[in-house]
Protein backbone atom coordinates (compact mmCIF):
# COMPACT_ATOMS: atom_id res chain seq x y z
CA UNK A 1 0.00 0.00 0.00
CA UNK A 2 1.41 3.36 -0.99
CA UNK A 3 0.74 6.89 0.14
CA UNK A 4 -2.87 7.19 -1.01
CA UNK A 5 -3.91 3.98 0.69
CA UNK A 6 -2.07 4.66 3.91
CA UNK A 7 -4.53 7.35 4.93
CA UNK A 8 -7.12 4.60 5.18
CA UNK A 9 -7.52 2.19 8.01
CA UNK A 10 -8.03 -1.43 7.05
CA UNK A 11 -8.81 -2.60 10.59
CA UNK A 12 -12.30 -3.89 9.80
CA UNK A 13 -11.76 -5.53 6.46
CA UNK A 14 -9.40 -7.32 4.14
CA UNK A 15 -7.42 -4.83 2.03
CA UNK A 16 -8.65 -4.65 -1.54
CA UNK A 17 -6.01 -2.87 -3.62
CA UNK A 18 -7.07 -0.86 -6.66
CA UNK A 19 -5.24 1.62 -8.90
CA UNK A 20 -6.61 4.75 -10.49
CA UNK A 21 -5.71 6.15 -13.87
CA UNK A 22 -3.10 8.47 -12.37
CA UNK A 23 -1.28 5.49 -10.90
CA UNK A 24 -2.37 5.98 -7.26
CA UNK A 25 -3.14 2.97 -5.10
CA UNK A 26 -6.16 2.65 -2.85
CA UNK A 27 -7.86 0.07 -0.73
CA UNK A 28 -11.28 -0.19 -2.30
CA UNK A 29 -12.82 -1.52 0.91
CA UNK A 30 -11.63 1.63 2.65
CA UNK A 31 -13.28 3.66 -0.09
CA UNK A 32 -16.49 1.75 0.55
CA UNK A 33 -16.30 2.27 4.30
CA UNK A 34 -15.79 5.96 3.82
CA UNK A 35 -18.61 6.57 1.40
CA UNK A 36 -21.25 3.92 2.00
CA UNK A 37 -23.25 6.17 4.32
CA UNK A 38 -23.76 9.04 1.84
CA UNK A 39 -24.16 6.51 -0.98
CA UNK A 40 -26.94 4.78 0.90
CA UNK A 41 -28.43 8.11 2.03
CA UNK A 42 -28.75 9.19 -1.60
CA UNK A 43 -30.01 5.84 -2.91
CA UNK A 44 -32.60 5.48 -0.14
CA UNK A 45 -34.06 8.89 -0.87
CA UNK A 46 -33.93 8.51 -4.62
CA UNK A 47 -35.57 5.08 -4.61
CA UNK A 48 -37.81 5.47 -1.52
CA UNK A 49 -37.06 1.87 -0.64
CA UNK A 50 -34.46 0.54 1.76
CA UNK A 51 -34.02 -2.89 0.18
CA UNK A 52 -33.71 -1.48 -3.31
CA UNK A 53 -31.31 1.17 -2.05
CA UNK A 54 -29.17 -1.52 -0.46
CA UNK A 55 -28.99 -3.43 -3.74
CA UNK A 56 -28.32 -0.25 -5.67
CA UNK A 57 -25.42 0.71 -3.40
CA UNK A 58 -23.94 -2.78 -3.59
CA UNK A 59 -24.19 -2.79 -7.40
CA UNK A 60 -22.75 0.71 -7.58
CA UNK A 61 -19.72 -0.35 -5.55
CA UNK A 62 -19.22 -3.33 -7.86
CA UNK A 63 -19.39 -0.98 -10.87
CA UNK A 64 -16.99 1.38 -9.15
CA UNK A 65 -14.54 -1.44 -8.47
CA UNK A 66 -14.61 -2.53 -12.10
CA UNK A 67 -14.26 1.01 -13.39
CA UNK A 68 -11.67 2.13 -10.89
CA UNK A 69 -8.86 2.24 -13.41
CA UNK A 70 -10.82 5.01 -15.16
CA UNK A 71 -10.88 7.21 -12.05
CA UNK A 72 -8.54 10.15 -12.65
CA UNK A 73 -7.64 10.54 -9.03
CA UNK A 74 -9.31 13.88 -8.30
CA UNK A 75 -12.45 13.74 -6.16
CA UNK A 76 -13.11 10.16 -5.18
CA UNK A 77 -16.23 10.92 -3.16
CA UNK A 78 -17.82 12.74 -6.09
CA UNK A 79 -16.75 9.94 -8.41
CA UNK A 80 -18.37 7.25 -6.24
CA UNK A 81 -21.51 9.33 -5.75
CA UNK A 82 -21.76 9.83 -9.49
CA UNK A 83 -21.88 6.08 -10.00
CA UNK A 84 -24.57 5.77 -7.34
CA UNK A 85 -26.53 8.65 -8.87
CA UNK A 86 -26.37 7.08 -12.32
CA UNK A 87 -27.41 3.71 -10.98
CA UNK A 88 -30.38 5.23 -9.17
CA UNK A 89 -31.40 7.00 -12.37
CA UNK A 90 -31.24 3.72 -14.28
CA UNK A 91 -33.40 2.01 -11.67
CA UNK A 92 -35.93 4.84 -11.70
CA UNK A 93 -36.01 4.72 -15.49
CA UNK A 94 -36.66 0.99 -15.61
CA UNK A 95 -39.23 1.42 -12.86
CA UNK A 96 -41.03 3.96 -15.01
CA UNK A 97 -40.83 1.63 -17.99
CA UNK A 98 -42.39 -1.20 -15.98
CA UNK A 99 -44.79 0.45 -13.53
CA UNK A 100 -46.03 -2.90 -12.16
CA UNK A 101 -42.61 -3.52 -10.62
CA UNK A 102 -42.95 -0.45 -8.44
CA UNK A 103 -43.98 -1.91 -5.10
CA UNK A 104 -43.70 1.07 -2.85
CA UNK A 105 -45.70 4.19 -3.48
CA UNK A 106 -44.29 7.56 -2.52
CA UNK A 107 -44.85 8.35 1.12
CA UNK A 108 -48.07 10.27 1.31
CA UNK A 109 -47.30 11.96 4.59
CA UNK A 110 -44.66 12.36 7.27
CA UNK A 111 -45.77 9.20 9.10
CA UNK A 112 -44.93 6.98 6.15
CA UNK A 113 -41.26 7.84 6.12
CA UNK A 114 -39.08 4.93 7.10
CA UNK A 115 -37.50 5.64 10.49
CA UNK A 116 -33.84 6.40 10.42
CA UNK A 117 -31.38 4.39 12.44
CA UNK A 118 -29.76 7.59 13.64
CA UNK A 119 -32.71 9.06 15.49
CA UNK A 120 -31.09 9.10 18.89
CA UNK A 121 -31.65 12.17 21.08
CA UNK A 122 -28.45 14.06 21.69
CA UNK A 123 -27.32 14.80 25.24
CA UNK A 124 -27.92 18.57 25.15
CA UNK A 125 -31.42 18.23 23.71
CA UNK A 126 -34.64 18.16 25.76
CA UNK A 127 -37.19 15.43 24.93
CA UNK A 128 -39.58 18.11 23.65
CA UNK A 129 -36.98 19.57 21.37
CA UNK A 130 -36.10 16.12 20.20
CA UNK A 131 -39.73 15.28 19.39
CA UNK A 132 -40.13 18.57 17.55
CA UNK A 133 -36.99 17.96 15.58
CA UNK A 134 -38.08 14.45 14.71
CA UNK A 135 -41.35 15.85 13.43
CA UNK A 136 -39.55 18.38 11.24
CA UNK A 137 -37.17 15.69 10.06
CA UNK A 138 -40.04 13.44 9.00
CA UNK A 139 -41.71 16.34 7.25
CA UNK A 140 -38.52 17.12 5.33
CA UNK A 141 -38.05 13.48 4.30
CA UNK A 142 -41.64 13.41 3.08
CA UNK A 143 -41.09 16.69 1.25
CA UNK A 144 -38.00 15.26 -0.41
CA UNK A 145 -39.89 12.15 -1.43
CA UNK A 146 -42.47 14.31 -3.15
CA UNK A 147 -39.92 16.22 -5.24
CA UNK A 148 -39.13 15.44 -8.89
CA UNK A 149 -36.12 13.10 -9.09
CA UNK A 150 -33.53 15.58 -10.35
CA UNK A 151 -34.51 18.30 -7.85
CA UNK A 152 -34.50 15.72 -5.10
CA UNK A 153 -31.03 14.54 -6.06
CA UNK A 154 -29.67 18.08 -6.15
CA UNK A 155 -31.25 18.92 -2.80
CA UNK A 156 -30.03 15.74 -1.09
CA UNK A 157 -26.50 16.27 -2.39
CA UNK A 158 -26.27 19.99 -1.61
CA UNK A 159 -28.48 20.53 1.42
CA UNK A 160 -28.41 17.17 3.16
CA UNK A 161 -24.96 15.88 2.28
CA UNK A 162 -23.17 19.19 1.98
CA UNK A 163 -21.58 18.75 -1.45
CA UNK A 164 -20.48 21.90 -3.20
CA UNK A 165 -22.34 23.02 -6.32
CA UNK A 166 -19.29 22.15 -8.40
CA UNK A 167 -19.18 18.64 -7.01
CA UNK A 168 -22.89 18.19 -7.63
CA UNK A 169 -22.42 19.30 -11.24
CA UNK A 170 -19.85 16.50 -11.52
CA UNK A 171 -22.02 13.94 -9.75
CA UNK A 172 -25.16 14.78 -11.70
CA UNK A 173 -23.28 15.30 -14.95
CA UNK A 174 -24.84 18.69 -15.65
CA UNK A 175 -23.86 22.35 -15.68
CA UNK A 176 -23.38 24.50 -12.61
CA UNK A 177 -26.36 26.59 -13.70
CA UNK A 178 -28.54 23.51 -13.85
CA UNK A 179 -27.50 22.55 -10.32
CA UNK A 180 -28.30 26.06 -9.08
CA UNK A 181 -31.72 26.09 -10.67
CA UNK A 182 -32.55 22.58 -9.43
CA UNK A 183 -31.51 23.52 -5.92
CA UNK A 184 -33.50 26.76 -6.05
CA UNK A 185 -36.63 25.08 -7.31
CA UNK A 186 -36.23 22.18 -4.91
CA UNK A 187 -35.87 24.54 -1.97
CA UNK A 188 -38.90 26.49 -3.10
CA UNK A 189 -40.99 23.33 -3.32
CA UNK A 190 -39.67 22.10 0.00
CA UNK A 191 -40.49 25.40 1.70
CA UNK A 192 -44.00 25.31 0.26
CA UNK A 193 -44.42 21.72 1.38
CA UNK A 194 -43.27 22.47 4.92
CA UNK A 195 -45.53 25.49 5.10
CA UNK A 196 -48.47 23.43 3.89
CA UNK A 197 -47.84 20.80 6.57
CA UNK A 198 -47.38 23.51 9.19
CA UNK A 199 -43.80 22.51 9.88
CA UNK A 200 -42.21 25.77 8.90
CA UNK A 201 -43.44 28.49 11.23
CA UNK A 202 -41.69 31.49 12.75
CA UNK A 203 -41.68 29.78 16.17
CA UNK A 204 -39.60 26.98 14.74
CA UNK A 205 -36.90 28.78 12.93
CA UNK A 206 -35.96 30.85 15.97
CA UNK A 207 -34.49 27.86 17.75
CA UNK A 208 -32.29 27.17 14.77
CA UNK A 209 -30.66 30.57 14.76
Amino acid sequence: MTAAAQVFNCANHAPLPVHDRAGNDYCYNCVIENFQAPAFGLARRMLNDWAMAEDAVQESFVSGYRAFSQFRGQNIKAWIMRIVANHCRDILRSRRARPTVSLDPLPSGPDDVTPSAAEIPSAQESPEDHAERQELRRAIEAGLAALPAEQKMALVLVDVQGFSYDEVALIMDCSLGTVKSRVSRGRGSMRDYLRATGELLPSQFRQDK
Binding site: N12, H13, L16, Y28, N29, I32, E33, Q36, A37, P38, A39, F40, G41, W50, E54, V57, Q58, F61, Y65, S116, A117, A118, E119, R137, I140, E141, V160, Q161
Partner: peptide, 12 residues
Amino acid sequence: LPNGPAPRSFVF
Protein backbone atom coordinates in the same frame (compact mmCIF):
# COMPACT_ATOMS: atom_id res chain seq x y z
CA LEU B 1 -30.84 14.87 8.49
CA PRO B 2 -29.00 11.62 9.05
CA ASN B 3 -27.12 10.19 6.11
CA GLY B 4 -26.54 6.87 7.64
CA PRO B 5 -25.31 4.74 8.97
CA ALA B 6 -25.64 2.32 6.10
CA PRO B 7 -27.84 -0.67 7.01
CA ARG B 8 -24.82 -2.94 6.71
CA SER B 9 -21.22 -2.81 5.63
CA PHE B 10 -20.77 -3.04 1.88
CA VAL B 11 -17.11 -4.02 1.97
CA PHE B 12 -16.13 -6.97 -0.23
